[in-house]
């Protein structure tokens, strides 16, 4: 079967998957003072902000959660969320009460790792302090 876009699909499955596939974005924050407890406190504060600023319905829709990525320092915290709610997530992150620096968002883990490497080069004066 040939789809309207000219792609060969298996009973339309591939086409429908492409159209309905949920897109996610990865937001990364650099924790300036990471003494171990900051991680959990930051997350509870961030979730609290997200719920109160954007509402609990949007909070659950955003599907925001922490992602553990290998070979990434503990000083960086990666939050995965749905593309449509990335603005809410960034806003809530900014208004948390912790010394964090928000890195540019990425669409893939690979791109995110690249950004973290760039951050470590350009932002060395931040990581030293």
């Amino acid at each position: 079967m040939i789809s309207m876009f000219g792609w060969r699909t298996k009973k339309g499955a591939a086409l429908s998957t492409t159209l309905t596939k949920k897109k996610y974005r990865y937001a990364c924050v650099y924790l300036q003072n990471n003494d171990g407890s900051v991680y959990s406190r930051f997350m509870s504060d961030f979730y609290g902000r997200l719920i109160e600023l954007c509402g609990s319905i949007d909070f659950h829709k955003s599907n925001a959660r922490i992602v553990n990525v290998d070979a990434v320092s503990k000083k960086f915290l990666i939050v995965k969320c749905k593309l449509e709610y990335v603005d809410n997530v960034l806003l809530s992150m900014y208004f948390t009460n912790y010394p964090i620096i928000i890195l540019p968002i990425s669409g893939t883990i690979k791109q995110l790792k690249k950004r973290i490497q760039e951050f470590l080069v350009y932002g060395d004066f931040l990581t030293d302090s």
């Binding site: 300036q32 603005d87 960034l90 806003l91 900014y94 912790y98 010394p99 964090i100 620096i101 928000i102 540019p104 968002i105 931040l126 302090s129």
Partner: peptide, 14 residues
Amino acid sequence: KYCELISLKVFNIL
């Protein structure tokens, strides 16, 4: 402070 700096993306969201 450094953590209070805002990126273009956050500016636009605000």
